[in-house]
Design a protein around this nucleic acid. Structure first.
Lengths: 132, 132
DNA sequence: ATAAATACGATTAAAATTGTCGTATTTATT
DNA sequence: AATAAATACGACAATTTTAATCGTATTTAT
């Protein structure tokens, strides 16, 4: 429990790789995938999603690839996680309303408080802290 | 991602229920299961595990049940989570050593740092904050 | 003796995550 | 114009993890 997904993991690996290598130049999905031994297609999808979110910029065609577009020091880990995986919650019932016994539940409020602490923590850390 | 498991959820519901109801008297798994609409057998197992961990005390036989044994204000959420679910890590590679590209990995250290922050946070919160 | 509770390993079911496939589009190069 | 190498992306399959159930044993108040 309390794990991050591979998607997030691959995204962070890619960002750090791009930043360390050449923040201006382009890096292909293939390069990253082979370098770190991760599935290329899955990585590609994640990169495409980050491109849609304007975290990185995509360039098509041969010689194409990705480069960092956003200021990584200004994107909190909370925002990053939520862009890739949706709202951050320790229990599903914070977002989905199909919990029948939601009224009986006696820990919703206290867990909500802990959840807020966690979101707070991730709000105070930026992507830069991972990538540099 | 970053979710707690149902096991932990049920354990917290049970603890809070026991504390709110009657810290001295016994509460059966059945009572809690029916009250909150959760699977009895699964809850029972979780209670049994907490009993083995001396968080609660089990009494067998009819009229048996469980009561809180430990001082909930002295058990951190980190310890509680780890007793129920094993070591707390955002990535598996912190514990399992079967990641082949562990050397190439460029985010192990930074994620480790974030993980430490998270463990720190849960170290500072006690079970009591959830149950009362 | 019976019934109601805990104890717990083994198994199954369900859900979430992870990975692959197939096809389309873009564009530098020849 | 043809080709090749890259991104784009929906649909599907495989795997893993989580959740739930089953079956049986043990304990003990009545």
């Amino acid at each position: 429990m309390l794990k991050i997904t591979r998607k997030v993991e691959y995204a962070l690996i890619a960002l750090r790789h791009m930043q360390a290598k050449d923040p201006e130049g382009l890096t292909s999905a293939k390069e990253i995938a082979t370098h770190y031994g991760i599935p290329k297609q899955l990585l590609a999808k994640t990169l495409q999603q980050m491109a849609r979110d304007n975290i990185i910029q995509a360039v098509q065609g041969p010689t194409g690839g990705y480069r960092i577009r956003a200021n990584l020091g200004k994107i909190s880990l909370k925002d990053f996680f939520e862009r890739l995986e949706g709202p951050l919650g320790m229990m599903d019932c914070f977002f989905e309303s199909d919990c029948i016994q939601i009224n009986a539940c006696n820990i919703r409020v206290p867990i909500q408080r802990i959840n807020d602490n966690m979101r707070d923590m991730f709000s105070k850390m930026t992507l830069m802290e991972v990538t540099q």
